[in-house]
């Protein structure tokens, strides 16, 4: 229903275009850096694009389907709409997830997948079923992970009421990390984004295994369990938040 209503606005394709534009400009700085400095060791533009595209695609998928959670703090908690949701005889999760759906958000995963394909082509990777499986598994893990991030931020908003900007650290800003060639990354940063906020597990490691950059094979498959683990942790936070929820209404 939301999908159809969005199509009614005549500007929707422009929004689509503008999101695509955003996705393309985002890594532009890094691409230009490569053109200025040449490649860094083994790392070329194709590799960075590959890692970045993995992260963007899974983030975009999560954003498309769980947009409601992204808007949750501002649009549901603060306005008191959430009270109404609690009264409806439908699963809470579905209600929130489906409360907003923006078609133009799909531009992000779409361009991400194109970028992955281009990167395979540019590196001359031979596509075997295993390669496809690793990438799909990585994307699925990423989708679950970012879904977890959205649920996590919504859970926190039960306490803070307002969506605070620092929450973007966990969603939009986090995939910026993938712009850095991982082997050269300072260890502290690498550890934070591997163990605490496992962004690299769903982008760098699957990409590395798929294209044969020399990481151990098993690390490429960790994406899915890591995503599920993160989602589970987020779910606990959400449940805790829900239990503590006191209406913001009068």
């Amino acid at each position: 229903m939301n999908f159809n209503s969005a199509l009614q606005y005549k500007g929707w394709w422009i929004m689509l275009l503008s999101v695509t534009f955003a996705v393309v400009t985002d890594p532009l700085g890094t691409v230009l850096l490569f053109s200025r400095f040449g490649s860094v060791g083994e790392w070329s533009v194709a590799r960075i694009i590959m890692v970045y595209a993995m992260a963007v695609t899974s983030f975009g998928l999560a954003e498309s389907f769980l947009r409601g959670f992204d808007y949750f703090p501002g649009h549901s908690i603060r306005t008191g709409n959430f009270d109404r949701m609690l009264l409806r005889p439908a699963p809470l999760f579905t209600q929130i997830a489906a409360s907003y759906f923006h078609i133009h958000r799909l531009a992000r995963p779409a361009s991400g997948i194109c970028a992955i394909c281009w990167s395979f082509y540019a590196q001359g990777t031979i596509i075997t079923p295993t390669v496809v499986a690793v990438v799909v598994c990585g994307l699925a893990g990423g989708f679950i992970l970012y879904s977890g991030a959205f649920i996590f931020t919504s859970g926190v908003s039960f306490f803070t009421i307002k969506a605070l900007d620092w929450i973007y650290l966990f969603t939009n800003a986090s995939y910026q990390v993938t712009r850095c060639p991982v082997p050269y990354m300072p260890n502290a940063l690498k550890n934070v984004f591997t163990f605490f906020m496992p962004m690299l597990l769903v982008s760098y490691y699957p990409a590395s295994v798929a294209c044969g950059w020399g990481e151990d094979t098993w690390k490429g498959w960790v994406a899915l369990p890591a995503g599920i683990l993160f989602l589970f942790a987020s779910w606990l936070i959400w449940q805790t938040g829900l239990r503590h929820y006191k209406s913001t209404g009068s």
């Binding site: 890094t30 850096l33 400095f37 040449g38 490649s39 860094v40 060791g41 910026q176 990390v177 712009r179 850095c180 060639p181 050269y184 990354m185 300072p186 940063l189």
Partner: peptide, 14 residues
């Protein structure tokens, strides 16, 4: 993050 990226390029590039 930006500084990290630039540092990598300035240190390891040709």
């Amino acid at each position: 993050i930006e500084i990290t990226v630039y540092t990598v390029f300035f240190t390891y590039a040709n």
